[in-house]
């Protein structure tokens, strides 16, 4: 099978983009960082497929990670903060009563001056920073593949396999990547950037098509070309 765009894009590049969006104070800055990533993806797509007809590959593998709350293809992960905390404690061999284990388990408690109380992903980031690889090695496609197996093993009630998949993600990712992975799994990215904004930057007709179909994959595939609008594809639709 032809390698997809997602199989070429390091997950780290998506995460650094999300980090920049989140850190930006102004809307134009946030927009700029998102557009840079999206435009690179589209240009790379053009170079990879050379405008071949009938290409199903699209921005979808990234979009479903950017808007995890709209995920429909994957069933629930069955994972919340407490389970992740226990998993990290086990994996990192943290003493159960030690400072870091307690930080993870009591992530809601107000802590220091960082103002990260209540945000498990940020608490985990500071615990993980000293303890995991500087650089991750996963691509966007690999992350989606592992999340697929987390979801399907969860629905098959194979907790051992869910854990195995999560370990795979954790051992191959940097602390920054894990912070974003956690947010994707919890399905709250905290970007300060609405779903509406993401859609409108992707394509002028994206919100409309999403409202009709609630199908993120279809939105990404059919509106891949910014110059091709809903009126052009509606003949095929209806």
């Amino acid at each position: 099978p032809q390698p997809t765009v997602a199989s070429h894009v390091p997950f780290a590049d998506l995460c650094s983009t999300l980090e920049r969006i989140q850190r930006s104070k102004t809307r134009p800055e946030k927009v700029k960082h998102f557009k840079e990533f999206l435009d690179s993806w589209r240009r790379f797509h053009d170079a990879l497929y050379k405008k071949a007809a009938g290409v199903a590959d699209s921005f979808y593998p990234a979009m479903r990670l950017i808007l995890p709350q709209l995920e429909r293809e994957r069933v629930a992960y069955g994972i919340k903060e407490t389970m992740l905390a226990k998993l990290y404690i086990e994996l990192l061999h943290l003493p159960k009563d030690g400072k870091d284990a307690q930080k993870l388990l009591n992530y809601r408690a107000p802590t220091g001056p960082r103002g990260d109380a209540g945000d498990f992903a940020t608490v985990a980031y500071f615990v993980l920073k000293q303890r995991c690889p500087r650089q991750g090695c996963l691509t966007v496609q690999q992350v989606n593949d592992v999340l697929d197996s987390v979801a399907s093993n969860n629905s098959a009630k194979r907790k051992d396999l869910v854990k195995k998949s999560l370990l795979q993600l954790i051992t191959q990712s940097s602390a920054l990547e894990q912070k974003w992975l956690i947010r994707m799994i919890i399905k709250d990215l905290k970007l300060g950037f609405s779903q509406q904004t993401v859609f409108s930057l992707f394509h002028r007709d994206a919100t409309e098509l999403y409202n009709v179909t609630t199908d993120l994959e279809k939105v990404c595939r059919q509106l891949h070309e910014p110059s091709v609008g809903l009126s052009d594809i509606s003949i095929a639709l209806f």
């Binding site: 070429h8 650094s16 840079e36 690179s40 790379f44």
Partner: peptide, 15 residues
């Protein structure tokens, strides 16, 4: 590293 396009050429990492 093959003959195909390289992602790194398309996406410039911010300094």
């Amino acid at each position: 590293v093959g003959d195909g396009p390289q992602w790194g050429v398309f996406f410039k990492k911010a300094a």
